[in-house]
Design a protein around this nucleic acid. Structure first.
Lengths: 340, 340
DNA sequence: ACCCCCTAGGTAAGCGCTTTCCCGGCAGGT
DNA sequence: ACCTGCCGGGAAAGCGCTTACCTAGGGGGT
């Protein structure tokens, strides 16, 4: 493995000179030397050791991103936004998947801290779990105190800048749409109980119910995994427990798609017999049949904004909180309930 | 920012002792000291500087992954497999998106090399471009010569271990299925010309055509972006250029879904009037209407195997090449051509 | 009682780079 | 011709950690 010193020796100059040329530092260097050094670099196929550079330099350059799972389309979209901004700024991004495991998330914060990343972007739902939240917050603050920047998506409760998707208003939008269509027997397919995304969206739904003079009973809300299979299973349970159901609200599109499959399998017409609404507006939503009504969250933009916040100059003005509006998107999966 | 030395001072011991305790090295340390040091670590909230550790230690631990785009479901699935194995081995993975830009890919290899990653996994199609391939190969070999391990997915032509998805046989499977159903006027929606994935899959399709006494003319093959919109646009062109078309083969499912949307929009029944077959068997495929016939590639498993190869002990036995079989999955989007 | 060896802990030499500080030499001013 | 002021380049001091090597002290064997 060729080192800076090897290159210097080869070119007959000091390591200082090589370093200056490689990093094209402001300090001027004679053209002849520069060429000789560059030639030596090429011959030796020198690749600087990034760890040594990081150690010697003061500046931090990479940024860390912690998401639940990049392979989940929800995070994939956010990540695309994050990446784009980071790349534009010439930053390397390190992506870490927590797989919704709080402990792993804590470990990753330490890891990114240890690697001297310039910033940490925390995407994905928070946990309804005070001790965990406190520990995470502690680690985040420590990281900030050493000069790291923090930006979170959702999880307003943490230190640092935040862009928060309007989950509660979005839930309200979905519920309101259903009630306005005339539905009264509504079932909800919720995500895991301990995620704030679940609780927030559900709160919006409950608010809509209340406003229309209804309430969501225990049998009307099924908690399941935030994916297709979770949605399918929950839909089955819902149907069983509430034979008179005329509408289902799923707390994300993956679950809605699963529910749709379940409905199709049982020969239940959507939206003729049962209406279905999702959340997030994933790319798939438009390609299923019927196309899914949903609540749109501008995910890529959320990623863009979160990374912009993470990379902004300083926080002289204190932490910034931005909101990302939810928008109702009505497509083919919702209609008025059937006449009895 | 607390350092090792701070902790040592606080605990009244040498840095060597602190280091040994933190890394719980085999060297025995008195219990009293250990406790004192651990206490100091906690009080100071010490987080070791990973860059310094990396520099001082010989071992490399992180592994790098270069994919086209994690937010593309194809790569998302592969990445999930990669991650799983890496995590099981306690390795951090650094994910880099090349966005199908060869130059960026080259830059990332350097970057991962510079960061002293233990291995680089290169996922995603190669480029039909000799100079690029040669440069990439050079960088990869250099990296290997410094002790890095390389494992590639597809791209058999490069140094290092490889797991190669059977793209050509898969293409053949798709073509053969269509011809067997009785189709003779087949259109192909291909990916970008310069990707080997495109050329390989297309080659399989051509072989099937030939075997059935046909050939794919220039008008029957449209090259487009490897995504939904590319597929939709290509389908439109195909239909226009070949009014008698009874079947379309798309070189991946995203494009197939786009084509499906285009067909639906024009009121063309699938598979009644036109049959459609995709490639990859993405999760969506089963949720569109009609469910998509496709050629299944075990993507997550491919990721698992690629990372296992990257992490295996040594290459005393020379580079290993494994194949991942393609499998035909017939669902609702293919049928015999309509009777004229 | 003496010696030796083992053990726990410390000392210090790097790991590969950046950057400050210093030095020698050249040009320009008087 | 001499001094001053620059300017290009090198020496060396770190950056924060690991680890080979060394040392002091205590226990056991004879």
């Amino acid at each position: 493995m060729a080192t800076l010193a090897d290159v210097a020796r080869r070119a007959g100059v000091s390591t200082a000179t090589v370093s200056r040329i490689i990093n094209n530092s402001p300090k001027p260097v004679a053209e002849a030397l520069r060429e000789r050094v560059l030639a030596a670099v090429a011959e030796l196929q020198f690749v600087p050791n990034a760890n040594a550079q990081q150690l010697a330099r003061a500046d931090r350059t990479a940024v860390g991103v912690i998401v639940h799972d990049v392979s989940d389309p929800y995070f994939a979209e956010i990540t695309r936004g994050l990446q784009r901004v980071a790349t534009d700024h010439g930053r390397l991004v390190i992506i870490c998947n927590s797989y919704r495991d709080p402990e792993r998330e804590l470990a990753y914060v330490d890891l990114l801290h240890a690697h001297q990343t310039a910033a940490i972007v925390l995407a994905g739902s928070g946990y309804v779990d005070a001790p965990i939240t406190a520990r995470l917050d502690g680690k985040l603050r420590l990281y900030q105190s050493t000069g790291g920047r923090v930006s979170v998506i959702g999880r307003h409760e943490h230190a640092g800048d935040a862009v928060v998707p309007e989950n509660e208003p979005g839930g309200y939008l979905a519920g309101d749409a259903l009630y306005r269509l005339g539905h009264t027997a509504i079932g909800v397919i919720a995500g895991p109980r301990h995620l704030t995304t679940t609780t927030d969206r559900l709160a919006g739904l409950r608010r809509a119910a209340k406003e229309h003079g209804h309430r969501l009973g225990a049998k009307q809300v099924i908690y399941a995994d935030f994916d297709r299979n979770g949605g399918a299973a929950a839909a089955a349970t819902l149907l069983e427990q509430n034979p008179a159901l005329t509408a289902i609200a799923a707390l994300n599109d993956s679950m809605a798609v699963g529910a749709l499959a379940c409905l199709r399998e049982r020969g239940i017409d959507v939206p003729g017999q049962v209406s279905l609404i999702g959340f997030d507006d994933m790319p798939i939503s438009v390609d299923v049949t019927p196309p899914l009504s949903t609540v749109r969250l501008p995910l890529e933009e959320i990623g863009i904004r979160a990374m912009s916040l993470a990379l902004r100059d300083g926080d002289r003005d204190g932490p910034l909180v931005e909101h990302a509006a939810a928008k109702l998107v009505l497509r083919g999966s919702t209609a008025a309930p059937p006449r009895p």
